[in-house]
Structures are given as structure tokens and as C-alpha cells.
Design a protein around this nucleic acid. Structure first.
Length: 638
DNA sequence: GTAGGGTTAG
């Protein structure tokens, strides 16, 4: 509502006092000045009777002010003057949509039932049905929408693009093929508003069908909304690379001059955050500053910027944007709480959470996930436990699987494996792969083979194709020097044709992405990079005294070689070496990685940060590590 | 003049 008022008041037109009073009522309604509209309608000029032209506007103003009784009065007035049921299409439509907006659906149905369909102009009947169907869609009443649609068709009332635009978002995905076919048969699928609508609805079930509709549109009918809809379809479904590719196409000749707006950029920034694509995101931010001067009033766009910076290593910038926001939503707070959590600053996250609550925002489930995972990354298990129990007692939130996953992770990593196991046993719902996976991860850290085997057994039943858990179990056996265990897991992987997900890391430099896989020699500077890694490894070994690295025994080293014999040069080492060779002394090297950092790379990077007097910021699959002066910000707790 | 399409946080 507020957004409408600001956007309309910015329009450069105002009430023209030479107009007849009924036209002035309409103008005031259009400007969002509903009280003035109604006051003029009532008291403005009593000599001529209320003009039929002013009535629909007055009805709309009543609706905006939630004055149900006012609508009833206007309805009665109109009936007395013989404007109903069908002689004024505009009035009928305004009343129907208003009643349904105000949740007075029986009233709306009554009005529609009074309509003599046989003697009503088809366009009037169509608009009447459209109004009510849209109203039912607004209140998420799909069954009512479709029963009205059936009635409409049975009565021979024609439908149009507006009808479909109300029905399509209300349809369950299973009904979509039929509805889509109907849209095609009626020729309405060619209307770009219907096509855009199809794209956004298909996006709920993945990007593929949404993409198909978009690809099938003639290039000339793709407008900003089409691009936004298809781009967000990919962004929402985790296809960040494709989303950025669409953005690139949109800005090129194919976009035919379509200018991105805030909605586009929210989708693009979310994909940048996902990928760690700093260069693209920074370009977007520049665009925002230059082209969208009012962006601070757009909470979603600011949230997207905060999230982008936070996930791409720009935590201070994220905090700054947050501080400068005139209005914040729970999403703004959650983005920042999560960001501090990912950087291991648990106390900051907790302080922010408390400040959010003090500011009058009641936490939701997502905010609690952010807070609990912040406690987890910082090893703050007492705080985490307290907040977890406060969820129900203080905030009246029922923990979901994700909260249990956080708690199992938090307790397990803190070494409280039995408590973590008890928590799983106490869950009111069945644990999923992620919950057991958190326990398995804790068993890896604390070298508990038996409990790990139990968890692994459950996981294999639930997510037999998730490679990560097999690797984790193999690593538990490896650390225990259990060669039989390693062989068993490898056999299971072979049997299910599962391949270890390759690790990859990348660094952005001069606007280009430099991607490295483990043992990958495809980079043009590969020779220099490998030479540097070898040299650094030698120096590190000398420094740390003959290769005794954090709990690695000879037996476990042997098991490791048996488990994954191919792994030699992990991708993060290559990425850091590239950074050292190509960036100025003193600047921070930011690396994005798809998997977790392994213990060997972790201690390597710590030592190299001291040797080279550089800072490395590494985002791995779960958090940030900042290596500087021989130490890591995670304080070796990850 | 009436009915109306796209967005974010784990």
C-alpha cells in the first residue's frame, strides 16, 4: 500500500478543479487520496445526484480504507438508482473485486448470482467473472477459482488473458499442462502477459519448463517482466550460472534495449552471492548507484546487496549498507546475522539478534537458523542450546529439520556426541539425511567410528546417491587407519557408480574468473603455479618440522593414500598460488571453494599466510576462513 | 474508468 502511494504521488499530475466533480473523485482515487475522494463524493456537490462515473472510484477508495460498511452503502445506493445488476460494468467489477478483497466472498457471490447471464453483454459478464476469480486467487482459494471458471465456461462467457493470469498462479502444478494447453488453444498463450505468468508459475517446480516458455516466445514480445521472470526462475532454483548468463544476454543485443530494474538486480545479486561472483556483483552495485538513485527505499534490493557482500567476503560493506538503510526488514537482519555467523563472529551475530528483537521484530524460523548456525561456527554450544529452547518457549516457533541439523552440528562439533544423538532420538519428526550428516561430520572431527557407522547406515537409506557422505565415512575410516572400512565404502561407491565430486576453487582477477580443479594443469600459468606450490610446500614442511601435521599418523596417511590415491594438489592451494603470483603485496586474496577445506590445506594456508605476509579469505562450502599471520579466523574449529 | 504478470534471507 505504501509503495503505491509513493509511486503515484510522484506522478506529475494532480486534481484539476475545472473538471466535473465525479471526474475529480476518480482522480483522487487514482492518486491514492482515498479520504479526500470519499469526502468529495459525500459532501462535494449535492446538487447533481451522485454521478455513475464517481461510484466505482468511491467503491475502490472504500476498499483501500477497509471500509466494508461504506461499500455496502454504495452498493445499496447503486441498486436504488438501477445501476445493478448489469447496466454498469465498471461498477459491478469494482464491487466484486472489492468484496473479495475484503474477504466478503459470500457477498460477492451473491452479486454475481444476481447477474442475468443471458441478457448481459459478454464483456460485462467476463469482467465480472474475472474480478471474482482474481479475488479468490488473492485469498489463495484455488478451488473457488476453478469452480467459477467452470461456471463461466458453462454459461458460454468468453475468457481472456486476464482470466488466465488469475487462474495460472492459483493452479496446482499438476493442473498446469491442461491450463497451458488451453492457453495455447485459445491463442492467449501468445500474449506476453500470459507467457510471463506461465514462466513464473513453472519456476516453482524448477527452471526447465519456465525456460521452455521463455525460449518459445518471439524475441520481440519478451519484455522486462519476461526477462525478470526467467532470470529469477533460474536464480531461485540454484542455477546461478544460467541466471548470470541470462543477465548477460538481456544486456546485449537480444535484450533489445530492455533496461534491468530492481527486480532483475535482486535475482542477479542473489546468483552472484551464491557463486561468489564478486566482479559481476560489484558491477551491479555500480549500476544501482548510477541508475537507481532511490534504491535505499527498496528494502529487497538493499537486502540483496547486503547478502551479496556478506557472501563474497565484503562483511564491512554489508554492515555499512545495513547501517545506512532507512527501513530494515527481518530479511536484512537475518542476512547480516548469517554473515557474521559464516565469518565465525558468533558474538556479533548474537548481539545483532538481540538488537533485532529489541527493535520489535519477532524472529522467524530462518532467523533462528542463522543464529544457531552462527553459534555452531563459533563453538558457542551453551548459547545455541539456550536459543534453541527459547524458540518454543519465548518465540513460539516450532523447530524444523533445519534447526535440528544446526543443533546436531553445534553439539556434535563441540564434542557432545551423545547429546547430539539423544537430540535426534527426541525429534518429533523423522531425521533426514542432513541431520544424520551433521552427526557424521561430528564423528569425523571427534574420530568416533562406531557412531559414525550408525549415522552412515541411516544416511545410505535416505540419500543413497549423495556422494559427500560416502567420502566423509571413508575419511573417518582413513583417520582411524581402518583400511577394510575404506575398501568397503569405496566398493559401495563403485557399486552405485558414484564419483567423488571434484573440488574446485576460483579467484577473480581483473574481471576474469580463474578456476582451478584439484591436479588441474589447464591454466595458462600452470607451470609457475605448480612450481610455487611445490616450493611453498617444501618451506612449510621445513617450518612445521618434517611434515607432522595436526594428528596425521603414518597409519592414517597410508589409509588416506588407499582411499583417494589421486588427490595431490588441492584446488585452493592452486588458487592461492595464482593469487600470490598475480596480485599486489598487501592485498587480500579471496578464494571461493565448492567443498570444505581439508586439514592439510588449512594448515598449509595458515603457514603460507605468515610466510608471504598476505591474508587469504577462503569461502568453503559452509563458512569463511580468513588466514593471516599464521592463524585462521575459525581458530581451527570448523 | 473495471479485472492484472516479475523479487530477497538458511
Amino acid at each position: 500500500m505504501a509503495a503505491t502511494e509513493t509511486s503515484t504521488s510522484a506522478v506529475a499530475f494532480d486534481v484539476d478543479y475545472t473538471e466535473p466533480w465525479s471526474a475529480r473523485v476518480r482522480t483522487l482515487t487514482r492518486l491514492g487520496r482515498h479520504r479526500e475522494a470519499l469526502s468529495l463524493f459525500r459532501h462535494g456537490d449535492p446538487s447533481p445526484p451522485p454521478d455513475a462515473l464517481a461510484l466505482p472510484a468511491a467503491v475502490i477508495s472504500c476498499a483501500k480504507l477497509h471500509l466494508a460498511s461504506g461499500v455496502e452503502q454504495l452498493h445499496a445506493l447503486a441498486a436504488k438508482r438501477g445501476l445493478l445488476p448489469s447496466s454498469d460494468a465498471y461498477l459491478l467489477s469494482a464491487l466484486l473485486s472489492t468484496y473479495s478483497r475484503l474477504r466478503l466472498l459470500p457477498r460477492a457471490h451473491q452479486l454475481l448470482d444476481e447477474l442475468p447471464l443471458a441478457s448481459t453483454a459478454p464483456t460485462t459478464a467476463r469482467t465480472a467473472f474475472n474480478s471474482l476469480i482474481s479475488g479468490c486467487a488473492l485469498h489463495a482459494l484455488p478451488a473457488a477459482c476453478f469452480s467459477l471458471f467452470r461456471r463461466m465456461r458453462a454459461a458460454g462467457v468468453p475468457f481472456d488473458a486476464v482470466t488466465l493470469m488469475a487462474l495460472v498462479p492459483a493452479a496446482p502444478l499438476g493442473v498446469m499442462p491442461q491450463l497451458h494447453a488451453l492457453a495455447v488453444r485459445s491463442g492467449l498463450a501468445a500474449s506476453n502477459s500470459v507467457a510471463n505468468c506461465l514462466i513464473s508459475v513453472y519456476a516453482r517446480g524448477g527452471a526447465a519448463l519456465a525456460r521452455k516458455v521463455f525460449d518459445g516466445m518471439p524475441a520481440a514480445s519478451r519484455d522486462l517482466v519476461s526477462w525478470n521472470a526467467v532470470l529469477s526462475a533460474h536464480a531461485q532454483n540454484g542455477l546461478a550460472v544460467e541466471a548470470l548468463e541470462l543477465y548477460r544476454r538481456m544486456r546485449g543485443p537480444e535484450g533489445a534495449g530492455v533496461e534491468p530494474d530492481a527486480v532483475t538486480l535482486v535475482g542477479v545479486l542473489s546468483s552472484c552471492a551464491h557463486l561468489g561472483a564478486r566482479c559481476v556483483g560489484l558491477d551491479v552495485e555500480r549500476y544501482v548507484w548510477e541508475r537507481l538513485p532511490g534504491f535505499r527505499a527498496n528494502v529487497q534490493l538493499c537486502n540483496a546487496l547486503i547478502n551479496f557482500h556478506a557472501r563474497c567476503g565484503g562483511l564491512p560493506r554489508a554492515q555499512q549498507l545495513f547501517d545506512e538503510m532507512p527501513e530494515r526488514s527481518i530479511v536484512s537482519w537475518t542476512a547480516l546475522i548469517t554473515a557474521y555467523g559464516m565469518h565465525g563472529h558468533g558474538h556479533f551475530a548474537i548481539n545483532l539478534f538481540e538488537a533485532m528483537v529489541s527493535s520489535g521484530i519477532r524472529p522467524d524460523n530462518v532467523a533462528m537458523v542463522g543464529l544457531l548456525s552462527a553459534c555452531s561456527h563459533a563453538g558457542m554450544h551453551k548459547e545455541g542450546r539456550n536459543y534453541f529452547s527459547a524458540m518454543e518457549t519465548t518465540y513460539h516457533l516450532r523447530p524444523t529439520l533445519e534447526h535440528y541439523t544446526c543443533m546436531v552440528d553445534l553439539l556434535g562439533r563441540a564434542g557432545l556426541l551423545d547429546e547430539a544423538q539423544d537430540l535426534i532420538a527426541s525429534m518429533p519428526m523423522a531425521a533426514d539425511g542432513a541431520v544424520w550428516g551433521a552427526l557424521l561430520g561430528a564423528c569425523k572431527i571427534h574420530k568416533n567410528v562406531e557412531m559414525g557407522e550408525e549415522a552412515f547406515e541411516r544416511i545410505v537409506e535416505i540419500e543413497p546417491n549423495n556422494v559427500g557422505y560416502y567420502v566423509l565415512m571413508a575419511n573417518i575410516y582413513t583417520d582411524a587407519g581402518n583400511l577394510d572400512g575404506v575398501a568397503k565404502v569405496r566398493a559401495m561407491m563403485r557399486h552405485r557408480r558414484l564419483k567423488k565430486e571434484p573440488g574446485c576453487s576460483y579467484v577473480e582477477h581483473n574481471g576474469k574468473v580463474h578456476l582451478f580443479m584439484a591436479d588441474d594443469h589447464s591454466h595458462p600459468q600452470a607451470k609457475r603455479i605448480y612450481d610455487l606450490v611445490v616450493k611453498l610446500e617444501r618451506t612449510v614442511k621445513e617450518k612445521t618440522g618434517g611434515g607432522v601435521v595436526e594428528g596425521i599418523t603414518e597409519k592414517s596417511a597410508k589409509a588416506k593414500a588407499a582411499a583417494f590415491p589421486l588427490v595431490g594438489f588441492h584446488s585452493e592451494k592452486l588458487a592461492v598460488a595464482f593469487g600470490l603470483l598475480n596480485t599486489e603485496a598487501g592485498s587480500e586474496i579471496v578464494v571461493i571453494k565448492n567443498l570444505r577445506v581439508c586439514g592439510d590445506c588449512h594448515s598449509f594456508l595458515k603457514t603460507v599466510s605468515a610466510l608471504s605476509n598476505r591474508a587469504f579469505l577462503v569461502r568453503d562450502a559452509s563458512r569463511f576462513h580468513r588466514f593471516e599471520d599464521g592463524a585462521c579466523s575459525c581458530r581451527d574449529y570448523w
